[in-house]
């Protein structure tokens, strides 16, 4: 299965807003990350079972940009989330 075709889902996480910043952390013992800029949009647009393409389409619709313009950034961020354990491959 190509990375683009893999389906992802969230693992248990905590979500805290503080002083205008947004933080998420894998539970029960981390890691944690600050969601900066488009990261928060991507996180919020993500639904369990989605592929990178599906998330890209969702984000594109939310921000009013063409999917091609943001696909690389979305995929890169999803890869980060998988690497840190906040998302896992189903």
């Amino acid at each position: 299965m190509t990375e683009a075709a893999r389906r992802l889902r969230r693992r248990a996480y905590a979500d805290v807003e503080h002083d205008g910043d947004r933080f998420v952390a894998r539970l029960p013992d981390g890691p944690a990350m600050r969601l900066v800029g488009s990261a928060g949009v991507i996180w919020d647009c993500f639904v369990d079972g989605a592929t990178a393409d599906e998330v890209t389409a969702e984000v594109a619709g939310a921000v009013g940009l063409a999917p091609d313009a943001i696909a690389a950034d979305v995929t890169h961020f999803l890869d980060d989330l998988v690497r840190t354990g906040l998302l896992e491959v189903t």
Partner: peptide
């Protein structure tokens, strides 16, 4: 590196997850 109030709230969440 997390702000203290964030850490504490996340700790509560972590403990509830384990519970």
């Amino acid at each position: 590196s997390l702000p203290l109030p964030v850490r504490v709230r996340m700790t509560h969440a972590a403990m509830q997850f384990l519970a």
